[in-house]
């Protein structure tokens, strides 16, 4: 079923990818409810989206790691949007693989932000959408979750967990008319990856948001963004262990 996205609830809205996607929606006159951590940044973003043509933009400030608040946040989202066509989860941190290997606290923070927080939100959102019998539930995951690799398995594990959960949710809700999307992104030039050197396969928030826009209106299931990551990860998944170790990827 194809239904244009006119009302969207966005968690982690000030992240570069969510911002780029919100701008596409705003240019079509969408109604947006933005949830994020920083009040000033959210207000500025609301002003930006308003100028770009959004019909209405409302904001809610919250630390999304605090799962106690999730119920209230979801309720507020429905109150300000009516029946949203889309809920997008875009919050995550990258952490440091090398530091995390010897620092459990850092790993735990990463799991809290990238896995526990989105799973709590997905639980609430899935039930809401199920009652509504329509809508699209999408979360930004990563190709890092496709295979445990020495360069980023801590971050990868949180994303693998998220992707697995989304897969199950998609099948559970298949009959209800609710679409669930697992957006598996390759590396993107954003604040999260500011310290990394960028190679040929890197994308930009604008390009990814544009590709996402094409998928969110009608697809469901696992989507690789940009699309070239599907064949690449197809290969990476079946690489012999010895090669993964040798390449240190």
């Amino acid at each position: 079923m194809k239904r244009p996205i006119k009302a969207a609830l966005v968690f982690g809205a000030t992240s570069a990818i969510a911002t780029a996607y919100c701008r596409i929606l705003a240019s079509r006159g969408a109604v947006l409810h933005l949830v994020g951590r920083d009040h000033d940044a959210l207000q500025n973003l609301a002003g930006d989206l308003d100028l770009r043509g959004a019909t209405k933009v409302s904001v809610a400030v919250a630390d999304l790691c605090d799962t106690e608040q999730h119920k209230k946040l979801v309720t507020e989202g429905w109150e300000s949007l009516g029946e949203p066509d889309l809920a997008l989860l875009a919050h995550a941190t990258l952490g440091s693989q090398s530091e995390g290997e010897t620092d459990w606290k850092q790993q735990r923070t990463l799991i809290q932000t990238n896995l526990i927080s989105p799973l709590s939100l997905l639980t609430l959102l899935a039930n809401r959408f199920e009652q509504q019998h329509s809508g699209c539930l999408a979360a930004i995951s990563s190709v890092a979750g496709d295979r445990g690799r020495p360069s980023n398995y801590i971050y990868g594990a949180t994303k693998a967990g998220l992707s697995c959960y989304l897969g199950g949710l998609q099948h559970r809700l298949a009959a209800t008319g609710v679409r669930v999307l697992d957006l598996r992104l390759g590396p993107v030039d954003t604040p999260m990856t500011a310290g990394l050197s960028k190679g040929l396969l890197w994308s930009t928030p604008e390009r990814v948001a544009h590709a996402m826009d094409g998928k969110l209106a009608r697809h469901h299931g696992t989507v690789y963004l940009p699309a070239y990551w599907r064949p690449i990860m197809g290969v990476v998944r079946v690489l012999p262990d010895i090669l993964v170790q040798r390449l240190g990827i």
């Binding site: 000030t14 992240s15 570069a16 920083d38 000033d40 940044a41 954003t190 604040p191 500011a194 310290g195």
Partner: peptide, 10 residues
């Protein structure tokens, strides 16, 4: 160190 703020708080 490279750092990309999205807010004054950052």
């Amino acid at each position: 160190y490279t750092f990309a703020p999205t807010s004054v708080r950052d």
